[in-house]
Design a protein around this nucleic acid. Sequence first.
DNA 1: CAGTATCCTTCCTGATACTG
DNA 2: CAGTATCAGGAAGGATACTG
Lengths: 121, 121
Amino acid sequence: MTEQVRCGPYFCGIDAAMDVVSGKWKSLILWELDEKGTRRYGELKHGLPGISEKMLIQTLREMEADGLVHREVYRQVPPRVEYSLTEHGVSLNKALEPLTSWGIERINRVGASRVDIPEPV
Amino acid sequence: MTEQVRCGPYFCGIDAAMDVVSGKWKSLILWELDEKGTRRYGELKHGLPGISEKMLIQTLREMEADGLVHREVYRQVPPRVEYSLTEHGVSLNKALEPLTSWGIERINRVGASRVDIPEPV
DNA sequence: CAGTATCCTTCCTGATACTG
DNA sequence: CAGTATCAGGAAGGATACTG
Protein backbone atom coordinates (compact mmCIF):
# COMPACT_ATOMS: atom_id res chain seq x y z
CA MET A 1 0.00 0.00 0.00
CA THR A 2 1.23 3.45 -0.80
CA GLU A 3 1.95 5.12 2.46
CA GLN A 4 3.14 8.59 1.66
CA VAL A 5 4.56 10.52 4.49
CA ARG A 6 2.63 13.72 4.75
CA CYS A 7 0.52 13.52 7.86
CA GLY A 8 1.84 10.50 9.66
CA PRO A 9 0.56 7.31 8.10
CA TYR A 10 -1.94 9.23 6.03
CA PHE A 11 -1.68 11.57 3.15
CA CYS A 12 -3.78 13.89 5.15
CA GLY A 13 -6.96 13.99 7.15
CA ILE A 14 -9.26 13.21 4.28
CA ASP A 15 -7.51 9.93 3.82
CA ALA A 16 -7.93 8.98 7.45
CA ALA A 17 -11.59 9.84 7.34
CA MET A 18 -12.28 8.12 4.04
CA ASP A 19 -10.58 5.07 5.35
CA VAL A 20 -13.18 4.90 8.06
CA VAL A 21 -16.31 5.70 6.04
CA SER A 22 -15.55 4.03 2.78
CA GLY A 23 -17.37 0.90 1.87
CA LYS A 24 -20.86 0.41 0.69
CA TRP A 25 -22.68 0.45 4.01
CA LYS A 26 -20.76 2.40 6.60
CA SER A 27 -22.19 5.81 5.94
CA LEU A 28 -25.65 4.32 5.77
CA ILE A 29 -25.29 2.57 9.10
CA LEU A 30 -23.93 5.74 10.60
CA TRP A 31 -26.92 7.62 9.36
CA GLU A 32 -29.35 4.95 10.46
CA LEU A 33 -28.01 4.86 14.00
CA ASP A 34 -27.87 8.62 14.21
CA GLU A 35 -31.38 9.10 12.94
CA LYS A 36 -33.07 6.33 14.86
CA GLY A 37 -30.84 5.91 17.88
CA THR A 38 -29.91 2.60 19.41
CA ARG A 39 -30.90 -0.31 17.22
CA ARG A 40 -30.87 -4.05 17.53
CA TYR A 41 -29.15 -6.21 14.99
CA GLY A 42 -32.42 -7.26 13.42
CA GLU A 43 -33.71 -3.72 13.27
CA LEU A 44 -30.59 -2.58 11.48
CA LYS A 45 -30.89 -5.40 9.02
CA HIS A 46 -34.44 -4.37 8.34
CA GLY A 47 -33.51 -0.72 7.91
CA LEU A 48 -30.85 -1.55 5.35
CA PRO A 49 -32.62 -3.51 2.66
CA GLY A 50 -30.27 -5.48 0.51
CA ILE A 51 -27.48 -5.93 3.01
CA SER A 52 -26.35 -9.47 3.66
CA GLU A 53 -25.89 -10.72 7.20
CA LYS A 54 -22.23 -11.15 6.54
CA MET A 55 -21.76 -7.59 5.39
CA LEU A 56 -23.84 -6.19 8.20
CA ILE A 57 -21.93 -7.93 10.95
CA GLN A 58 -18.60 -7.37 9.26
CA THR A 59 -19.25 -3.68 8.82
CA LEU A 60 -20.48 -3.30 12.38
CA ARG A 61 -17.36 -4.98 13.69
CA GLU A 62 -15.13 -2.69 11.70
CA MET A 63 -16.98 0.33 12.92
CA GLU A 64 -16.71 -0.93 16.45
CA ALA A 65 -12.97 -1.39 16.02
CA ASP A 66 -12.79 2.13 14.65
CA GLY A 67 -14.52 3.43 17.72
CA LEU A 68 -17.61 4.65 15.92
CA VAL A 69 -20.11 2.16 17.21
CA HIS A 70 -20.81 0.71 20.62
CA ARG A 71 -22.05 -2.85 20.94
CA GLU A 72 -24.04 -3.85 23.98
CA VAL A 73 -24.85 -7.50 24.57
CA TYR A 74 -27.65 -8.64 26.82
CA ARG A 75 -27.23 -12.21 27.90
CA GLN A 76 -30.73 -13.44 27.41
CA VAL A 77 -32.51 -16.13 25.52
CA PRO A 78 -33.16 -15.21 22.83
CA PRO A 79 -30.07 -13.01 22.58
CA ARG A 80 -30.34 -9.27 22.36
CA VAL A 81 -27.60 -7.08 20.99
CA GLU A 82 -27.89 -3.35 20.64
CA TYR A 83 -25.78 -1.02 18.57
CA SER A 84 -25.39 2.68 19.10
CA LEU A 85 -23.08 5.47 18.02
CA THR A 86 -20.19 6.55 20.17
CA GLU A 87 -19.43 10.24 20.38
CA HIS A 88 -16.88 9.77 17.63
CA GLY A 89 -19.55 8.21 15.51
CA VAL A 90 -21.83 11.13 16.15
CA SER A 91 -19.14 13.66 15.31
CA LEU A 92 -18.24 11.80 12.16
CA ASN A 93 -21.83 11.86 11.10
CA LYS A 94 -21.90 15.58 11.68
CA ALA A 95 -18.77 15.98 9.59
CA LEU A 96 -20.55 14.09 6.85
CA GLU A 97 -23.48 16.49 6.67
CA PRO A 98 -22.05 18.95 4.13
CA LEU A 99 -21.17 16.03 1.94
CA THR A 100 -24.73 14.79 2.16
CA SER A 101 -26.03 18.20 1.17
CA TRP A 102 -23.64 18.25 -1.73
CA GLY A 103 -24.94 14.86 -2.80
CA ILE A 104 -28.54 15.99 -2.65
CA GLU A 105 -27.74 19.07 -4.69
CA ARG A 106 -25.97 16.89 -7.17
CA ILE A 107 -28.99 14.64 -7.51
CA ASN A 108 -31.26 17.60 -8.02
CA ARG A 109 -28.91 19.21 -10.48
CA VAL A 110 -29.26 16.83 -13.33
CA GLY A 111 -30.34 13.53 -11.97
CA ALA A 112 -26.68 13.09 -11.17
CA SER A 113 -26.07 10.90 -14.14
CA ARG A 114 -22.53 10.27 -15.09
CA VAL A 115 -21.79 11.85 -18.42
CA ASP A 116 -20.00 10.19 -21.26
CA ILE A 117 -17.08 12.30 -22.28
CA PRO A 118 -16.93 12.47 -26.08
CA GLU A 119 -13.67 11.57 -27.72
CA PRO A 120 -11.69 14.64 -28.68
CA VAL A 121 -11.73 15.11 -32.44
CA MET B 1 -32.47 16.02 7.72
CA THR B 2 -33.82 13.91 4.96
CA GLU B 3 -36.07 11.00 5.58
CA GLN B 4 -35.12 7.54 4.75
CA VAL B 5 -36.77 7.66 1.43
CA ARG B 6 -34.71 6.40 -1.40
CA CYS B 7 -33.80 9.34 -3.56
CA GLY B 8 -33.99 7.79 -6.97
CA PRO B 9 -31.22 5.28 -7.38
CA TYR B 10 -29.65 6.43 -4.13
CA PHE B 11 -30.45 5.90 -0.53
CA CYS B 12 -29.91 9.54 0.06
CA GLY B 13 -27.42 12.31 -0.52
CA ILE B 14 -24.54 10.74 1.28
CA ASP B 15 -24.71 7.82 -1.07
CA ALA B 16 -24.62 10.03 -4.12
CA ALA B 17 -21.64 11.90 -2.76
CA MET B 18 -19.77 8.81 -1.65
CA ASP B 19 -20.31 7.35 -5.05
CA VAL B 20 -18.36 10.23 -6.49
CA VAL B 21 -15.52 10.44 -3.96
CA SER B 22 -14.99 6.80 -3.15
CA GLY B 23 -11.95 5.08 -4.47
CA LYS B 24 -8.45 5.27 -3.27
CA TRP B 25 -7.35 8.39 -5.07
CA LYS B 26 -10.27 10.67 -5.82
CA SER B 27 -10.24 12.69 -2.65
CA LEU B 28 -6.48 13.06 -2.93
CA ILE B 29 -6.65 14.32 -6.49
CA LEU B 30 -9.38 16.70 -5.49
CA TRP B 31 -7.24 18.01 -2.69
CA GLU B 32 -4.14 18.23 -4.87
CA LEU B 33 -5.91 20.22 -7.57
CA ASP B 34 -7.57 22.47 -5.05
CA GLU B 35 -4.37 23.16 -3.16
CA LYS B 36 -2.05 23.62 -6.07
CA GLY B 37 -4.38 24.72 -8.82
CA THR B 38 -4.16 23.58 -12.41
CA ARG B 39 -1.74 20.71 -12.82
CA ARG B 40 -0.30 18.80 -15.70
CA TYR B 41 -0.56 15.04 -15.89
CA GLY B 42 3.05 14.55 -14.92
CA GLU B 43 2.80 16.97 -12.05
CA LEU B 44 -0.18 15.14 -10.67
CA LYS B 45 1.65 11.86 -10.99
CA HIS B 46 4.53 13.35 -9.08
CA GLY B 47 2.29 14.75 -6.39
CA LEU B 48 0.62 11.40 -5.82
CA PRO B 49 3.50 9.04 -5.18
CA GLY B 50 2.49 5.43 -5.49
CA ILE B 51 -0.32 5.89 -7.97
CA SER B 52 -0.01 3.85 -11.12
CA GLU B 53 -0.49 5.47 -14.48
CA LYS B 54 -3.52 3.35 -15.03
CA MET B 55 -5.18 4.45 -11.82
CA LEU B 56 -4.31 8.08 -12.37
CA ILE B 57 -5.75 8.33 -15.83
CA GLN B 58 -8.72 6.15 -14.96
CA THR B 59 -9.55 8.21 -11.92
CA LEU B 60 -9.15 11.48 -13.78
CA ARG B 61 -11.48 10.26 -16.49
CA GLU B 62 -14.11 9.27 -13.97
CA MET B 63 -13.87 12.62 -12.26
CA GLU B 64 -14.15 14.32 -15.59
CA ALA B 65 -17.27 12.32 -16.36
CA ASP B 66 -18.65 13.27 -12.98
CA GLY B 67 -18.10 16.91 -13.77
CA LEU B 68 -15.51 17.50 -11.08
CA VAL B 69 -12.47 17.97 -13.23
CA HIS B 70 -11.79 19.87 -16.41
CA ARG B 71 -9.28 18.56 -18.89
CA GLU B 72 -7.55 20.96 -21.24
CA VAL B 73 -5.46 19.63 -24.07
CA TYR B 74 -2.82 21.70 -25.83
CA ARG B 75 -1.90 20.29 -29.16
CA GLN B 76 1.84 20.57 -29.02
CA VAL B 77 4.84 18.39 -29.28
CA PRO B 78 5.49 17.20 -26.70
CA PRO B 79 1.86 17.06 -25.60
CA ARG B 80 0.60 19.13 -22.73
CA VAL B 81 -2.55 18.32 -20.83
CA GLU B 82 -3.76 20.31 -17.88
CA TYR B 83 -6.28 19.33 -15.27
CA SER B 84 -8.21 21.67 -13.06
CA LEU B 85 -11.25 21.59 -10.82
CA THR B 86 -14.65 22.63 -12.07
CA GLU B 87 -16.86 24.61 -9.75
CA HIS B 88 -18.52 21.37 -8.74
CA GLY B 89 -15.15 19.97 -7.89
CA VAL B 90 -14.39 22.99 -5.79
CA SER B 91 -17.69 22.80 -3.96
CA LEU B 92 -17.22 19.11 -3.33
CA ASN B 93 -13.84 19.78 -1.87
CA LYS B 94 -15.38 22.37 0.38
CA ALA B 95 -18.01 19.88 1.48
CA LEU B 96 -15.18 17.52 2.30
CA GLU B 97 -13.47 19.93 4.67
CA PRO B 98 -15.25 18.95 7.89
CA LEU B 99 -14.49 15.37 7.12
CA THR B 100 -10.84 16.24 6.69
CA SER B 101 -10.82 18.01 10.04
CA TRP B 102 -12.45 15.00 11.61
CA GLY B 103 -9.76 12.81 10.10
CA ILE B 104 -6.97 14.99 11.43
CA GLU B 105 -8.50 14.99 14.89
CA ARG B 106 -8.77 11.26 14.67
CA ILE B 107 -5.11 10.94 13.80
CA ASN B 108 -4.10 13.16 16.66
CA ARG B 109 -6.40 11.38 19.05
CA VAL B 110 -4.62 8.07 19.21
CA GLY B 111 -2.60 7.66 16.11
CA ALA B 112 -5.84 6.50 14.56
CA SER B 113 -4.97 2.90 14.89
CA ARG B 114 -7.72 0.42 14.47
CA VAL B 115 -8.31 -1.39 17.71
CA ASP B 116 -8.68 -5.09 18.07
CA ILE B 117 -11.92 -5.86 19.79
CA PRO B 118 -11.36 -8.64 22.31
CA GLU B 119 -13.55 -11.67 22.08
CA PRO B 120 -16.32 -11.62 24.64
CA VAL B 121 -15.70 -14.37 27.21
C1' DC C 1 4.87 13.98 -22.34
C1' DA C 2 0.78 11.83 -21.86
C1' DG C 3 -1.17 8.42 -22.27
C1' DT C 4 -2.79 2.69 -23.86
C1' DA C 5 -2.80 -2.15 -23.43
C1' DT C 6 -2.26 -6.23 -20.94
C1' DC C 7 -2.06 -9.18 -17.35
C1' DC C 8 -2.35 -10.35 -12.67
C1' DT C 9 -3.63 -10.18 -7.71
C1' DT C 10 -6.32 -8.82 -3.95
C1' DC C 11 -10.34 -7.14 -1.95
C1' DC C 12 -15.37 -6.78 -1.81
C1' DT C 13 -19.67 -8.55 -1.79
C1' DG C 14 -23.33 -11.69 -1.69
C1' DA C 15 -25.81 -16.40 -1.27
C1' DT C 16 -26.42 -20.13 1.38
C1' DA C 17 -26.29 -23.18 5.14
C1' DC C 18 -25.51 -23.89 9.95
C1' DT C 19 -25.23 -22.80 15.49
C1' DG C 20 -25.55 -21.20 20.61
C1' DC D 1 -32.31 -13.73 17.73
C1' DA D 2 -27.91 -12.91 16.53
C1' DG D 3 -24.73 -14.47 14.77
C1' DT D 4 -20.62 -18.00 12.10
C1' DA D 5 -18.68 -20.63 8.18
C1' DT D 6 -17.83 -21.36 3.58
C1' DC D 7 -17.65 -20.58 -1.22
C1' DA D 8 -17.78 -18.16 -5.44
C1' DG D 9 -17.92 -14.23 -8.71
C1' DG D 10 -16.69 -9.74 -9.93
C1' DA D 11 -14.72 -5.35 -9.28
C1' DA D 12 -10.96 -2.57 -7.76
C1' DG D 13 -6.27 -1.83 -7.79
C1' DG D 14 -1.39 -2.49 -9.46
C1' DA D 15 3.09 -3.60 -12.48
C1' DT D 16 5.00 -3.21 -16.62
C1' DA D 17 5.71 -2.63 -21.48
C1' DC D 18 4.47 -0.08 -25.37
C1' DT D 19 2.82 4.24 -28.51
C1' DG D 20 1.56 8.90 -30.86
